[in-house]
Design a protein around this nucleic acid. Structure first.
Lengths: 126, 126
DNA sequence: CAGACGCGTAACCGATGAGTTACGCTTCTG
DNA sequence: CAGAAGCGTAACTCATCGGTTACGCGTCTG
């Protein structure tokens, strides 16, 4: 398990516009660059560079047909990222440890309703 | 359709150090801030700010005990992010469209394994 | 109680990133 | 074949980010 492309995928995903582009491609399948740009309020070069980021991180592939560039989604890196996330969401170890630790913070989180006697968890960063 | 915290989670995940912190907390359960800082080569204030980002995105919770701040993982936002990713990895629609399109780019992708650009910030240093 | 300890924050700085406009290259078209 | 259409890139600006050092504040301890 190398999780090599997790780095790039996470970086790519961090940008709202890029996420929207991915969703767009998911729904529409294959969309030319200009058409993608037309869907957003930012300029076409900005979209072009977002597409480059997505391309370089393997999330998207481009097929040149004539003077158009059709973009298609490639969810493989996203699957890898999902695999990386799985170690957190599926592994029960963290919960066991938290149970063993029996911290106040966790009980609060878990019950979500009881009055907080100490309230020492949420203070800084006013 | 909320995916509200996906934004923040993706942002938090985009940073290699923050990913490593999450993995560290996954394995160790509850770790004080200074101990976390000691595991990395960067300065303690830098870690402190990474921890703030993780806190504000809900990925981590802090419990103050005396003069220590114990950090624990909260995988809930990661689960949400995984849910967002699921629309790409589980939905078969994209593949149908790609099959229908039958593009050269896709056949290329399918036949030969794609080269993996090595960028191994992944394996935690702990 | 003075001082060490633990941790967060402020102030500052170089690097990165996302947006813009201007431009160039290739491909279609009248 | 000239010009429009479609895209990408270069050059630039501004905001954000991640790192550092200096500092402040609450907590433990001899």
């Amino acid at each position: 398990m190398s999780y090599a492309s997790v780095v790039d995928a996470a970086q790519a995903i961090a940008e709202p516009v890029r996420r929207d582009i991915l969703v767009l491609l998911l729904h529409e399948g294959s969309v030319p660059a200009g058409e993608i740009a037309r869907r957003f309020s930012i300029s076409r070069p900005a979209i072009s560079r977002h597409l480059r980021v997505l391309r370089e991180s393997g999330l998207v592939r481009a097929e040149t047909t004539g003077r158009q560039r059709l973009y298609v989604l490639d969810p493989a890196p996203l699957a890898e990222l999902a695999g990386w996330l799985a170690q957190f969401t599926s592994d029960p170890a963290w919960q066991q440890r938290l149970d063993a630790l029996e911290t106040e913070v966790y009980r609060t989180r878990r019950e979500r309703a009881r009055p907080d006697p100490a309230a020492a968890t949420e203070q800084e960063t006013a």
